[in-house]
């Protein structure tokens, strides 16, 4: 794969927790204008890979690069990343407004989407100033999405973005993801819903036991496995291993 115009990439990243090797020599790229799906069974290292890209986990070996420059262990590069963690618990007594304002104040100089627009896009109006502790899981997940898309980052990392969302919100978020991709952003997402990835993904990274077993376009995956659906392709891949 051509990594020349990669926005964010890992090179030879390995990570051990104690004696368990979670990532082993992982090199992958996120390209502008493309949605990359990271796939793999539970415990395959998807979340660790996400966190390594964000600097939440420090690799034992290898580097994270932004636009070709090494950023391992630094903080500032995260200004170019929007992150939507998997169903986070927000502080109970803060409202969606408090959280958005907090995140906004942490990047005081970054260009950002108008808050009103986000409130409308994710339908936050009805509970915008209410404590998040009394909001539903779906409502919190919408706030979570709004936080990830608040700025106009080059990279957006989405961890199980549609989990807990109702179909309407889910569809709205997917539209938003496609719109962001079309604006030229590099998007990484993980999901258990393969049909959803099939709908959105351009590229696929398949992780198993901390190693990359496949990396390429969705078409290339289908071709190489002969599967008609992503699900078939994945099961073929797993059987090969």
């Amino acid at each position: 794969m051509n990594s020349l115009n990669a926005v964010l990439e890992t090179r030879g990243v390995s990570k051990r927790f104690g004696r368990t090797s979670v990532l082993h020599d992982v090199s992958m790229t996120l390209m502008p204008g493309r949605v990359t799906a990271v796939l793999g069974p539970n415990g395959s290292g998807k979340t660790t890979l996400n966190k390594t890209l964000l600097g939440l986990v420090r690799p034992n070996a290898g580097d994270v690069l932004l636009n070709g420059a090494t950023v391992t262990g630094t903080d500032a590069y995260r200004a170019h990343i929007g992150y939507m963690p998997q169903a986070p618990r927000f502080p109970e007594n803060l409202s969606a407004r408090d959280v958005l304002k907090l995140v906004l104040s942490l990047r005081p100089h970054a260009p950002h989407v108008a808050i009103d627009e986000l409130v409308a896009a994710f339908d936050l109006e009805s509970f915008y100033t209410r404590s998040l502790g009394v909001c539903s899981g779906g409502q919190r997940q919408r706030v979570n999405a709004a936080v990830a898309l608040l700025f106009e980052p080059a990279v957006i990392i989405l961890d199980e973005p549609t989990a807990g969302l109702d179909p309407v919100s889910s569809a709205a978020l997917k539209d938003r993801i496609i719109a962001e991709r079309n604006k030229g952003r590099a998007i990484l997402m993980t999901s258990h819903v393969l049909s959803e990835l099939e709908e959105l993904a351009d590229d696929v990274v398949f992780l198993l036991e901390g190693k990359i077993r496949f990396q390429g376009t969705l078409e290339a995956l289908r071709t190489s496995t002969g599967g008609l659906t992503l699900e078939r392709s994945i099961s073929t891949l797993m059987l090969q291993c």
Binding site: K51, G55, D75, Y77, Y83, P85, P88, R89, P91, V147
Partner: peptide, 12 residues
């Protein structure tokens, strides 16, 4: 988890 969200922001 919220701490992780904040850690993903570009602050030291």
């Amino acid at each position: 988890e919220f701490t992780e969200l904040l850690l993903a922001q570009p602050l030291p």
